[in-house]
Amino acid sequence: MPQRPARKPERPFFSSGPCAKRPGWSLSALDHALLGRSHRAPEGRARLREVIDLSHRLLGLPKDWRVGIVPASDTGAVEMILWALAGERGVDVLSFESFSGLWAQDLRDVLRLEDVRVLDAPYGELPDLTKIDWSRDVVLTWNGTTSGVRIPNGDFIPAERDGLAICDATSAAFAMDLPWNRLDVVTWSWQKVLGGEAAHGMVALSPHAVARLEQPSPRPLPKIFRLTNKKGLIEAIFQGDTINTPSMLCVEDALDGLRWAESLGGVAALQARSQANLEVVARWVEQADWVDFLAASPETRSSTAICLKIVAPWFQALSAEDQARGVKKIAGLVAAEGAGYDLASYRDAPPGLRIWGGATVEASDIEALLPWLDWAHDEAKKEFAA
């Protein structure tokens, strides 16, 4: 029977968004934020442009790709692209967790496109990637933040394709290899792998995507979604002149995260940190008899949103309602001890646990967390299996 652990994580922050700040972060990192000044002043534009340029360089984007800062986090970035691009041809969309399911719903039920194929799979699995028709536009989520399932590589994407490959990469960018030469639109936010503050999104466009955007729009667009005007692409957006007013505090925080990543050695170092976190959890899961990965295949296990299912017989015997209560109990016990916060699975996902393993999380903190989960599970079992 697990004893109450003595050691606690130094930073017990495991939320999947907003995510843990980088190691060593403090409010002093924002001391030089450009407050009380216009984001359109030369100094403001310079900070925004630095976010764009650093992101472009660190991610290793092709030189001819365009990167811009857009409103409303990754959700805003994806919605902007779907409204601006979808409908020129048929669309295939992968749906295997909450947010990828939301993109499918938007295309089918909100935009009401006539030709949408939804390739779906249950939580823990990927859709059959061989069924994608690359003559159509394809909307895919690289890493399922709510399922812990990731696309393992880009080999399934043909180098030559007629449609656009539109990728929601918010919990993959900076932590996973993205095949830029096989994608056309990629979106992410500041709040995930680099632990930045929320509310701002990023969009990266290939020349193929830019050419499509410069064609007549399939529908009227609100200002917040417009990347083009009568002259073509609105170049200012990709130079640091944002569509709406950004928070310069958030901009300063994004720069802090990017500079930290650069100081470590770039994306390769971030990927190694995230992979180390997954390996810590994998070793624990292998010896634990009550928990397993939600991702059915080891090749598809996310190193950022590490999602777990509870396989203990006592838990499986519970009703769905009591399973949700059981998860809340386990997560609540750990949180009450100050040993780990925000560990319950996403509200639409199967009842279970979720540990953020992005690059800002230390492997030593996950190592310290896991005995607390064993202890909390045993405590919850006493109540629910009685």
Rank of each mutant, 00 (worst) to 15 (best):
P313F: 06
A236D: 15
L227C: 06
L233A: 07
C307G: 01
S247Q: 05
V280C: 08
A296W: 08
G266T: 08
G265V: 12
I224D: 07
S297L: 14
D184A: 06
N244P: 00
A175D: 10
I224Q: 12
P298E: 05
V311N: 13
Q239N: 10
L278N: 01
L178C: 02
P246D: 01
A272L: 05
Q239T: 13
F293L: 02
N229E: 08
Q275S: 13
W188V: 00
C250E: 11
S303T: 08
A320L: 14
A209M: 11
L183I: 15
S247C: 09
I310Q: 05
W260A: 10
D177R: 09
W260N: 08
I234W: 07
G265Q: 08
P207L: 03
Q316H: 07
R182Q: 13
R273Q: 13
A268M: 01
L308M: 10
A272R: 14
F225L: 15
S319P: 12
D253Q: 15
W190S: 14
D292F: 05
A320N: 13
A209N: 11
P218L: 10
W290H: 04
P207A: 07
G257S: 08
Q275N: 13
I310G: 07
D177P: 01
A296M: 07
K231I: 09
L194S: 00
N244Q: 02
P298T: 03
I237W: 15
E197I: 00
A254W: 13
D289P: 02
L213P: 03
E235M: 01
L270E: 03
P216V: 12
R283F: 04
L258E: 00
G195N: 00
P222E: 06
D241A: 14
C307M: 06
A261I: 02
L318Q: 14
W188I: 00
S303L: 01
Q316K: 14
A276L: 06
H200V: 00
A204N: 03
S274E: 01
V291C: 15
F225H: 15
L205G: 10
P313R: 03
R212L: 12
K231W: 12
N244E: 04
A272Q: 13
I310T: 10
A305I: 05
A236W: 07
F315G: 02
E197L: 04
A276R: 15
S302T: 01
A199S: 13
F293K: 06
Q239V: 03
W180Q: 07
T228I: 04
S217I: 02
V267K: 12
A199F: 10
W260F: 15
D241W: 12
T228M: 09
L278S: 03
G201E: 01
L205M: 06
G266F: 04
A254L: 11
L255D: 06
V285N: 01
T300I: 12
Q271W: 05
I243Y: 08
E299L: 12
Q215A: 15
A295H: 00
L249K: 11
L249M: 11
S303N: 13
G232H: 04
N229F: 03
A173L: 08
S217Y: 04
F225Y: 15
V193N: 15
A288D: 14
Q191D: 14
A272H: 07
P220C: 10
K223M: 12
V185N: 03
L255T: 05
A320H: 13
L249S: 09
D292A: 14
S206G: 04
V291E: 09
A198D: 10
S303G: 03
E252F: 07
A296C: 08
V251W: 07
